[in-house]
Design a protein around this nucleic acid. Structure first.
Lengths: 112, 112
DNA sequence: TACCGAGTTGAAGGATTTCGCAAGTGCTAA
DNA sequence: TTAGCACTTGCGAAATCCTTCAACTCGGTA
């Protein structure tokens, strides 16, 4: 195979590995939105947002189309929302584990 | 919360954004494994693997313990497997879309 | 036509990551 | 104690990513 599967997977996840891109995807979960709205919600420069949108477009995670004077973006497949949800679940699991460890340390662990 | 949620999410996904780390997690889905085995399966230098394992450890996605002369690694939570599965699903959706486009573009010989 | 708002693109820089080598730690057996 | 396997860590060099600025395209409107 030309691009090993595990490399394609890594690229997929790396695409999500940026705060602005995550926020865009989360905002688009509620339906298509114009760049205007994303820009108003995210606090980032227009050109920067545009660059991040381009990354998401190249990765095939969003699609865009023009609606009069506005450019609209939408998730290319609802599966993206599943992935975000799975991420939320893990984040919960991992963070509680870490907090448990922190609490253990703070309480004065078995060895010091 | 000290770190905004969307940033924590981005870090989580970025952790998965590396071929070696993806392979490690997939191999660990079948149960704990010593570094030896990972090394034999992945084709990467020992020091490099060690560094990627350290990244996964810091992110809280795997745990390690020593068993005699070997160091064992395991997924810290089975939720990680869910995330990988979700990734696989999206990859399917996104790649078929893209392949359809590619086929449309080239109508010709196999290369790359 | 000229102009303006909405987005995009290209390029430069600075910041992060990644990689391989060399050196170091831990455990076990001789 | 010495040797040796199993890993890990420190550290530059190279590759990659992120951000910003300036310039550009596209629609709508006067």
């Amino acid at each position: 195979m030309s691009v090993p599967l595990y490399q394609a997977k890594a690229e997929l996840f790396r695409t999500l590995g940026h705060p602005v891109r995550i926020r865009v995807l989360e905002l688009l979960q509620d339906g298509p939105k114009p760049v205007r709205d994303l820009l108003a919600a995210i606090d980032v420069e227009a050109s920067n947002l545009s660059q991040q949108l381009a990354v998401l477009r190249r990765a095939g995670m969003v699609t865009s189309y023009r609606d009069g004077p506005l450019v609209m973006y939408a998730l290319s497949t609802p599966d993206v929302a599943d992935l975000l949800a799975a991420g939320r679940r893990i984040l919960g699991a991992v963070l509680t584990d870490r907090d448990a460890l922190l609490d253990e340390l703070r309480a004065g662990g078995p060895d010091r």
